[in-house]
Structures are given as C-alpha cells and as structure tokens.
Amino acid sequence: NLFRIFGDLSHLASIGILLHTVRSTQSIDGISFKTQALYALVFMTRYLDLFTWHWVSLYNFLMKVFFLASSVYIVVLLQQFRTKNPIAYKEMVLQDTFKIHFLLLGSLVAGLCFHHRFTLLEILWSFSVWLESVAILPQLFMLSKSGRAQSLTVHYIFALGLYRFLYIFNWIWRYVSEARVDKIAVVAGIVQTAMYSDFFYIYYKKVIRGNAGNLP
C-alpha cells in the first residue's frame, strides 16, 4: 500500500540526506554517533532472517540489505572522523552524552517479555523493534541540549519521523484490508512516533512557519 511505500521511501530519504551531507560537507556537526550505532544494531538484530532463507520478496530482500549495509557504513564513516577531524569528532562525543545502556537494557527486557515465539531470532527481532522505538533519543537529546539544529539534523529527523508516522497508517490499512495486526510492531511504532511528536512541533514552528530561533 501507498503508506508503506512512502514510509519506506521516507526512511531511504533520511539515510540519503545523512550520507550526502556528511560526505559533501565533511561535517558531522549535530549528529549523534550513539543513535547511528543503535540503528546499526537494530538492523543487525532484526534482519538475521536474511540468513535463514525466509524469502518474502525481492523488494523486502533488497531493502533489508540496503538498511543493513547503510547503517554500518554510516557508523564507519563517522568513526573515520576520529582520525580525519579529531576536533570535530571530540566535539560530537562531548555533546553525545545520553546514557544508552538504559535503552539497551530496557529493549532487552521488553524483547524477553513481549515476542511472538520464544526463539533466539524472534526475541532478537522483538529487541530490535523496541530498540528502534527509542534509538532516536540520543539524537533528540543532543538537539535539545545544543539548542540549535543544523538543517541536516532537522531534515534527517523529519524524514525519519515521517517514516514512522506513515507506518501507523500502513498498519491501519493492513488491519482493515488483510485483518492483519502485529501488536508488538504497532505498540513500539506508536511509542516511536510519540518520541518525534515534540520534534514535529518544533519543526513546524521553525521550518514551515519560518520562525528562526532557538529550540526549547
């Protein structure tokens, strides 16, 4: 359905925006390394079914490979700044202070409590869904602490939030047309979209209405 396609395209766009800007400006100002590392972990634990011959479709396969490869590539790209631009790297590390072990532990507990089947793959899948729902927090925390946002970060978060928002409509669509519902994905997806709601409000004020100014 269209919500799903545009949701996935929006997700692709967010990665494209991030990669393009980092590569063309050679700047990592405002990007949370922790959020990017968490996304790499999300895709590594979710797409293990790539190795189990669980074929869904070519679309599904190619997207999984892309998300897995691009998330790892972004982590490597950011790590290269460690030697390439140590000052910028150090600045990022100093701002990137969110304690992610709570997110990891919380997602692990949620994965162990809520899953479709008690198998390693299913628990890791559930862990990845819960972790994805909170993985943006270090980035949002960094944004609110610095009080100013690079247009890169703002557009990146907007595209990512739009992807989650569209997925909710995709689930409503699928519930109506296929009577299909994945409770874990839906609950985690709503949690994740809620994470962005404050950001959407700021984005609306700042970008759409053109109010330049500091973020609260």
């Binding site: 979710r46 869904v56 479709s57 599904n60 479709h116 299909r180 409770k183």
Partner: peptide, 10 residues
C-alpha cells in the same frame, strides 16, 4: 485479526 506468520515489513 490474525497475527503475522512472517515479518514482511521493514
């Protein structure tokens, strides 16, 4: 509503 048998979403 039925539960998904496979994870066909990303």
């Amino acid at each position: 509503a039925k539960r998904p048998a496979v994870h066909d979403e990303l």
